[in-house]
Design a protein around this nucleic acid. Sequence first.
DNA 1: GACCAGCTTACGCCAGCCTTACATTGCTCT
DNA 2: AGAGCAATGTAAGGCTGGCGTAAGCTGGTC
Lengths: 224, 224
Amino acid sequence: MRLLIVEDNVELSRLLASGLMAAGYESDIVNSVAEARDALRSVSYAAMILDLSLPDGDGLSVLSELRRKNDPLPVLVLTARNGLQDRVNGLRTGADDYLAKPFALEELVARLEAILRRPGQLLGSSLKLANLVYDTESKQVFVDGAPHVFSARETSVLEILLRRQGRVVPKKNVEDHIFGLSGEVASNAVEVYVSRLRKLLSEHNAKIVIHTIRGVGYLMAEEK
Amino acid sequence: MRLLIVEDNVELSRLLASGLMAAGYESDIVNSVAEARDALRSVSYAAMILDLSLPDGDGLSVLSELRRKNDPLPVLVLTARNGLQDRVNGLRTGADDYLAKPFALEELVARLEAILRRPGQLLGSSLKLANLVYDTESKQVFVDGAPHVFSARETSVLEILLRRQGRVVPKKNVEDHIFGLSGEVASNAVEVYVSRLRKLLSEHNAKIVIHTIRGVGYLMAEEK
DNA sequence: GACCAGCTTACGCCAGCCTTACATTGCTCT
DNA sequence: AGAGCAATGTAAGGCTGGCGTAAGCTGGTC
């Protein structure tokens, strides 16, 4: 699952990213309002962690822009301001939660996961399809109850296809989900991972097929 | 919108209910774990405000029961305990937010609305006709809820006719929509794709017909 | 019945996709 | 540190199915 961290303090953002990685999340870091806008336009994130004081403007403007577009992206606001009015403003603008600095990394992770667990269900309940169960917390795959561990990339592809099972997932979305902002990929990596995932699923007798929709993307469904 | 307040302090619960009514929400008040369970079983609420210390048990048990049943009901936990560990526990159990007493009514409303704001948007903008739904984002077609995948060209024709259902679409418009500006087509491609689309729609039992208007174009409508 | 617009089927071509192989990187265990 | 190993991204070659074209057919119109 990929997050966007908007924070101009380099030290803090690195700390966040590494803490979140330990908790099993990938993240992209940007340092300004402008970069945040770009990132949000090009990649689909599971959530955003947003600092309010940024060099080129107020983080809340990014948030209010999102909400004006009816984008339900979970947003956790991070700030030094901790007045009641600040908190109320943040939440009214559409923040899903509000955390004042300084904070414990543990609490940030807990609050983040609480956000992700809400309707929209990015986290929490496991995902199921046919005889396969994928636990979103431990990132473990079970086929007929037997546990398997796939590599990070394979899991990532499985997850996004599983979340949108029965629906077509554009190839570009898969690519963004796997690689985020970290340099565009100059190869057929997505195809390779889909291929590897197909092989894995079949080896483990999962009753699942990944259909290819030429020129569009992929569709995961139960094998009939 | 109706809320469930689970709180044994009568004074506080009344205060909450009146404050929420002022903000435009109806609410039911219950005082115990047992009553909460009954209420949840018989009524469908928009959200629950849950106090943890109740006369007959821990409010968290109500919450964990809900989540075990994959019920995504938004829950705002309310409590006097405010240790980091308490908050983390509450959020991990599946609370959407956690508010420590004492709190300002204004903040509770703001947090509640932050929780309620997210739409469970499963599909992008979609076009409908008879028993067919077309999702413009994933470019997927559903007939009686069953997903189908058409090729790029077929989808393209379907989309323009669907967007102007009930109206005649000049053949030239269809051609432009399919091929854009990229060089004119020196054949009867439009006719070919309309033909293929008709075949597909009928194969999938879509209750839709494409009428031909000689010398003009096509008209898509519900089959009577 | 002659004409004409549109319908349908067949077919070769090629972009897009699949798969395999391989070099590189980063991690683990000794 | 170094060996061993797994995972990752790239490249290359083969394959497939969607594509546009053309040709023969249908049915409505004058």
